[in-house]
Each structure stands twice: as structure tokens, then as C-alpha cells.
Computed example of a mutant assay.
Amino acid sequence: MIMVPAEKLWCAVESHLLPEEKNMNHLLTEEKVHKLMPIIEKILSRKYGKEINFIDLTIGNISVNKKSS
């Protein structure tokens, strides 16, 4: 298991956002976290040179898993 501090994870995600998305009120929903999951997997896979796939992802107090759609 790879543990990545939330601050570093958000910085990686935020660097891929458009300027207008960065200025939005960042209210996370389960749907948004679910959409972020493959983006975060790809970012971390590139960083560590290995394919990384999450079973579950928790950001803040919102948890999603691959099975939830």
C-alpha cells in the first residue's frame, strides 16, 4: 500500500485543472471523487513508474470504491 499525503495528492490534481476550475468553490461530492479516481491513478502511475489502481479512495470524508458507479 502506498500512502500519499492529501496535500501532495491535491497539488498533483490541482496542477491538471484549468484556471477557471481552480477558482471554483471546491465542494466535493461522491460523484466528483469517483471521477477523480482514474485521474489520480494515472498521475501516481506516472510518478512511480508502476501501474497504480485504487480499490477505495477517500478524500476528506468522502469515500468511493471501484464498484460504486
Rank of each mutant, 00 (worst) to 15 (best):
E30F: 10
L27K: 09
K42F: 03
P38H: 10
L18G: 09
R46H: 09
H26I: 15
I40G: 00
R46Y: 07
V33P: 03
R46F: 06
P38R: 05
L27E: 15
H26S: 09
N23C: 05
H34T: 13
I43N: 00
T29D: 11
M37G: 03
I43L: 11
S45Y: 10
K32A: 10
I39G: 02
P38Y: 05
L18R: 10
H34M: 09
K35Q: 15
K47V: 04
H34Q: 15
V33I: 11
E21C: 04
L36Y: 07
L36E: 04
T29N: 06
N23T: 13
K47Q: 06
E41M: 00
P19N: 01
S45Q: 09
E21P: 04
M24V: 14
N25K: 10
L44H: 02
L44G: 01
H16M: 12
E41R: 01
N23V: 12
L36A: 07
E41V: 01
S45W: 08
K32F: 07
I40H: 00
M24E: 15
H16S: 14
E41W: 01
H16Q: 14
L18H: 13
N23R: 04
R46N: 11
L36F: 08
L28K: 12
L36M: 12
E31R: 07
E31W: 07
R46E: 15
E31V: 13
S15G: 10
E41K: 01
L27A: 10
K32M: 10
E21M: 07
I43W: 00
L18V: 15
K35P: 05
S15R: 08
K35G: 06
M37K: 07
E41N: 00
E41D: 02
P38W: 06
N23L: 08
I43F: 00
P19M: 02
T29F: 07
K22E: 12
R46P: 03
I40Q: 00
L17K: 01
M24C: 07
L44M: 01
E14L: 02
E20K: 03
R46D: 12
K35M: 09
L17W: 08
S45T: 14
T29A: 03
K22F: 01
H26G: 08
K42R: 09
L28C: 10
E14R: 02
E31S: 13
M24W: 03
L27Y: 10
L18K: 12
K42I: 01
L18P: 03
M37R: 10
L28G: 14
L44C: 02
L28P: 14
M24D: 11
K22S: 08
L36K: 02
R46M: 06
P19H: 06
L36R: 03
N25C: 12
L18D: 15
I40L: 06
L28D: 15
L17M: 15
T29P: 03
M24Y: 05
H26T: 15
K22M: 10
E20H: 07
H34K: 14
I39V: 13
E14S: 07
S45R: 03
N25M: 06
M24T: 12
V33M: 04
L28M: 13
L18E: 15
L27N: 12
T29H: 08
L17V: 08
E14G: 02
K32Y: 09
E14H: 04
E30S: 15
S15W: 01
E30G: 14
